[in-house]
């Protein structure tokens, strides 16, 4: 019984994390800060939710499958974030003039 309550608390925490991520996506004013913030907060929410579900379920094939999903997500989520940021960068999306000018001057 105690593990179910703990798991539900973890799920609630993950929802709070993801809500903050969505809030940041909706309110920030430039693309790069959105990318940086969401990549973090979303992964934290995902891991917390999966841990919560594993606590509720106990040790069974269900939670082993959840572990498998967690491993795949940890491998693939940074790849997609990186490829989006890389695509924006190579297409010429820059943030600020000064940083670029300093870099080319040195």
């Amino acid at each position: 019984m105690i593990n179910v309550i703990a798991g539900q608390i973890l799920m609630g925490i993950s929802l709070v994390f993801m809500a903050i991520g969505i809030y940041s996506v909706l309110t920030f004013h430039d693309f790069y800060s959105r990318v940086v913030i969401t990549a973090k907060v979303d992964t934290v929410g995902f891991i917390t939710l999966i841990f919560g579900a594993m606590l509720i379920q106990g040790f069974s094939f269900f939670s082993l499958k959840l572990l498998l999903i967690l491993v795949f997500e940890l491998l693939t989520s940074p790849i997609s974030t990186h490829s989006i940021a890389h695509s924006a960068y190579t297409s010429g999306y820059t943030i600020r003039k000064e940083v670029r000018a300093e870099g080319s001057g040195e």
């Binding site: 940086v36 990549a39 973090k40 989520s77 974030t81 990186h82 190579t90």
Partner: peptide
């Protein structure tokens, strides 16, 4: 390394 940089505090690998 690039993967873990993308996952950890405040950084995303670009290139």
């Amino acid at each position: 390394l690039a993967n873990s940089i993308t996952l950890t505090p405040g950084t995303v690998t670009l290139d």
